[in-house]
């Protein structure tokens, strides 16, 4: 786990925004989220790998948009008006993540965070920092670095 993850886990009360990607339930620490926007067509980049949809104008800044489903190996989302782009900040850079829908804000305490089950797929273990169990489901805490990190390798 990366450094800023441990930091975010050390707080007492935590808030997560939950959303769905290809039918699965995921969440992100609310502090990392800058805003949530409705999907609008983006400018595609040439030679981009599959998870990269293109770039978007966010008030004068050019930010890349990723298809989370594709990054997580869950197929390709065919984006439509109903989908959302979650704008996140990492290392002073902004990124947009395409998700199916945004659901709710989840308030949990630290001890409700559970470690990622020891699944076989290494990439799954890398993509998910941990899980939180819900009433009749669970939500996966997404590791931003996994979703955005390999971008430069994919393109350059």
């Amino acid at each position: 786990m990366s450094e800023d993850v441990t930091k975010s886990l050390s707080g007492r009360d935590l808030k997560f925004v939950t959303f769905t990607v290809a039918g699965q339930n995921y969440c992100l620490d609310i502090q990392k989220i800058r805003e949530i926007r409705r999907w609008t067509p983006v400018t595609p980049l040439p030679h981009a790998s599959n998870g990269v949809l293109g770039v978007m104008n966010l008030r004068g800044a050019v930010i890349p948009i990723y298809d989370m489903a594709s990054r997580l190996g869950l197929g390709i989302t065919d984006p439509s008006e109903r989908n959302v782009v979650i704008v996140v900040a990492m290392d002073d850079n902004l990124f947009g993540l395409l998700a199916e829908t945004v659901q709710e804000i989840l308030s949990v305490t630290e001890d409700q965070l559970l470690p990622t089950p020891d699944v076989k797929s290494e990439s799954t273990r890398e993509a998910i920092q941990g899980v939180i169990s819900l009433a009749d489901d669970m939500t996966r805490i997404l590791d931003l670095r996994f979703v955005t990190g390999s971008f430069s390798r994919a393109v350059a």
Binding site: I63, N93, S152
Partner: peptide
């Protein structure tokens, strides 16, 4: 500039924002 988050994209040097708010490469 696209450098910061994109690295080098062959054939593309940068991006700009057009009058309609869209990004053009």
């Amino acid at each position: 500039s696209l450098d910061r988050s994109f690295g080098d994209i062959p054939g593309i040097s940068a991006a700009t924002i057009l009058g309609d708010g869209k990004i053009a490469l």
